[in-house]
Protein backbone atom coordinates (compact mmCIF):
# COMPACT_ATOMS: atom_id res chain seq x y z
CA UNK A 1 0.00 0.00 0.00
CA UNK A 2 1.28 3.47 -0.91
CA UNK A 3 1.13 6.21 1.69
CA UNK A 4 -1.24 8.30 -0.40
CA UNK A 5 -3.51 5.29 -0.88
CA UNK A 6 -4.14 4.80 2.84
CA UNK A 7 -7.95 5.02 2.92
CA UNK A 8 -9.60 7.98 4.60
CA UNK A 9 -13.21 6.80 4.57
CA UNK A 10 -15.87 7.78 7.05
CA UNK A 11 -16.17 5.32 9.94
CA UNK A 12 -17.32 4.95 13.53
CA UNK A 13 -13.82 5.88 14.74
CA UNK A 14 -14.90 9.46 14.31
CA UNK A 15 -17.17 9.29 17.35
CA UNK A 16 -14.14 8.60 19.57
CA UNK A 17 -12.06 11.14 17.73
CA UNK A 18 -9.15 8.93 16.80
CA UNK A 19 -7.47 7.60 13.70
CA UNK A 20 -5.72 4.28 13.50
CA UNK A 21 -2.16 3.79 12.38
CA UNK A 22 -1.34 2.02 9.12
CA UNK A 23 1.98 1.05 7.56
CA UNK A 24 2.61 2.11 3.97
CA UNK A 25 5.46 3.01 1.61
CA UNK A 26 6.30 6.57 0.56
CA UNK A 27 7.24 7.66 -2.98
CA UNK A 28 10.83 6.42 -2.46
CA UNK A 29 9.66 2.96 -1.41
CA UNK A 30 10.56 3.60 2.24
CA UNK A 31 8.21 2.28 4.91
CA UNK A 32 6.46 4.88 7.00
CA UNK A 33 3.20 5.23 8.91
CA UNK A 34 0.02 7.09 8.12
CA UNK A 35 -3.16 7.59 10.11
CA UNK A 36 -6.43 6.40 8.63
CA UNK A 37 -9.94 7.56 9.46
CA UNK A 38 -11.35 4.24 8.28
CA UNK A 39 -11.84 1.91 5.33
CA UNK A 40 -15.25 1.10 3.94
CA UNK A 41 -14.91 -2.71 3.58
CA UNK A 42 -14.22 -3.03 7.30
CA UNK A 43 -16.77 -0.43 8.31
CA UNK A 44 -19.41 -2.49 6.48
CA UNK A 45 -18.17 -5.70 8.13
CA UNK A 46 -18.41 -4.07 11.55
CA UNK A 47 -21.83 -2.61 10.79
CA UNK A 48 -23.11 -6.04 9.76
CA UNK A 49 -21.69 -7.59 12.94
CA UNK A 50 -23.47 -4.97 15.06
CA UNK A 51 -26.71 -5.55 13.13
CA UNK A 52 -26.36 -9.26 13.79
CA UNK A 53 -26.01 -8.58 17.51
CA UNK A 54 -29.02 -6.24 17.48
CA UNK A 55 -31.08 -8.96 15.83
CA UNK A 56 -30.05 -11.39 18.56
CA UNK A 57 -31.05 -8.83 21.22
CA UNK A 58 -34.46 -8.26 19.62
CA UNK A 59 -35.00 -11.98 19.24
CA UNK A 60 -34.16 -12.59 22.90
CA UNK A 61 -36.47 -9.76 23.93
CA UNK A 62 -39.44 -11.14 22.04
CA UNK A 63 -38.81 -14.62 23.47
CA UNK A 64 -38.80 -13.14 27.00
CA UNK A 65 -42.14 -11.47 26.27
CA UNK A 66 -43.53 -14.75 24.97
CA UNK A 67 -42.41 -16.47 28.15
CA UNK A 68 -39.90 -18.68 26.35
CA UNK A 69 -36.77 -17.46 28.12
CA UNK A 70 -35.75 -15.31 31.08
CA UNK A 71 -34.45 -11.71 31.00
CA UNK A 72 -30.98 -13.10 31.77
CA UNK A 73 -30.65 -14.20 28.16
CA UNK A 74 -31.79 -10.78 26.96
CA UNK A 75 -29.19 -8.96 29.07
CA UNK A 76 -26.53 -11.45 28.03
CA UNK A 77 -27.13 -10.58 24.37
CA UNK A 78 -27.35 -6.87 25.20
CA UNK A 79 -23.84 -7.10 26.65
CA UNK A 80 -22.52 -8.94 23.57
CA UNK A 81 -21.86 -12.03 25.70
CA UNK A 82 -22.37 -15.72 25.07
CA UNK A 83 -23.14 -18.36 27.70
CA UNK A 84 -19.44 -19.08 28.25
CA UNK A 85 -18.53 -15.46 28.94
CA UNK A 86 -21.56 -14.86 31.18
CA UNK A 87 -20.84 -18.05 33.12
CA UNK A 88 -17.28 -16.93 33.84
CA UNK A 89 -18.50 -13.50 35.02
CA UNK A 90 -21.11 -14.86 37.45
CA UNK A 91 -18.99 -17.86 38.46
CA UNK A 92 -21.53 -20.57 37.58
CA UNK A 93 -21.21 -23.57 35.31
CA UNK A 94 -22.60 -23.02 31.83
CA UNK A 95 -25.39 -25.57 32.30
CA UNK A 96 -26.51 -23.67 35.37
CA UNK A 97 -26.69 -20.38 33.48
CA UNK A 98 -28.67 -22.11 30.75
CA UNK A 99 -31.05 -23.45 33.39
CA UNK A 100 -31.56 -19.89 34.64
CA UNK A 101 -32.86 -19.03 31.16
CA UNK A 102 -35.96 -21.11 31.93
CA UNK A 103 -38.71 -18.70 33.08
CA UNK A 104 -39.97 -21.22 35.66
CA UNK A 105 -36.48 -21.54 37.18
CA UNK A 106 -35.79 -17.81 36.92
CA UNK A 107 -38.94 -17.01 38.96
CA UNK A 108 -37.65 -19.04 41.87
CA UNK A 109 -34.09 -17.67 41.91
CA UNK A 110 -32.89 -16.24 45.22
CA UNK A 111 -31.98 -12.57 45.50
CA UNK A 112 -28.40 -13.63 46.06
CA UNK A 113 -28.27 -15.36 42.69
CA UNK A 114 -30.18 -12.60 40.94
CA UNK A 115 -27.79 -10.07 42.41
CA UNK A 116 -24.83 -11.82 40.79
CA UNK A 117 -26.39 -11.31 37.38
CA UNK A 118 -27.55 -7.78 38.20
CA UNK A 119 -24.04 -6.78 39.21
CA UNK A 120 -22.52 -8.11 36.00
CA UNK A 121 -25.13 -6.27 33.92
CA UNK A 122 -24.80 -3.16 36.14
CA UNK A 123 -28.55 -2.96 36.85
CA UNK A 124 -30.81 -3.48 39.87
CA UNK A 125 -32.59 -6.76 40.62
CA UNK A 126 -35.88 -5.05 39.81
CA UNK A 127 -34.62 -3.99 36.40
CA UNK A 128 -33.36 -7.50 35.77
CA UNK A 129 -36.75 -8.99 36.63
CA UNK A 130 -38.75 -6.49 34.59
CA UNK A 131 -36.27 -6.23 31.71
CA UNK A 132 -36.18 -2.47 32.21
CA UNK A 133 -39.89 -2.01 31.44
Amino acid sequence: MKKKEVPQDKSNLESANFRELCYAVDENGEYTTENSTGWEPKTVALKNAIEEINERIEDAKSRVLKGETSPIEYYMELHKMDVGILASYVGFWQWKVKRHFKPSVFKKLSDKTLNKYAEVFEISIEELKSMGR
Binding site: Y23, A24, N48, A49
Partner: peptide
Protein backbone atom coordinates in the same frame (compact mmCIF):
# COMPACT_ATOMS: atom_id res chain seq x y z
CA UNK B 1 -21.52 -13.16 8.76
CA UNK B 2 -18.52 -15.53 8.77
CA UNK B 3 -16.91 -13.82 5.80
CA UNK B 4 -17.36 -10.44 7.49
CA UNK B 5 -15.57 -11.78 10.55
CA UNK B 6 -12.63 -12.99 8.41
CA UNK B 7 -12.24 -9.48 7.01
CA UNK B 8 -12.61 -7.88 10.42
CA UNK B 9 -9.88 -10.07 11.92
CA UNK B 10 -7.65 -9.25 8.97
CA UNK B 11 -8.18 -5.51 8.89
CA UNK B 12 -9.15 -4.68 12.46
CA UNK B 13 -7.41 -1.97 14.42
CA UNK B 14 -4.00 -3.28 15.32
CA UNK B 15 -3.15 -5.09 12.13
CA UNK B 16 -1.64 -2.05 10.42
CA UNK B 17 -3.58 -3.23 7.33
Amino acid sequence: HYLGQVVRMQEEIGTGG
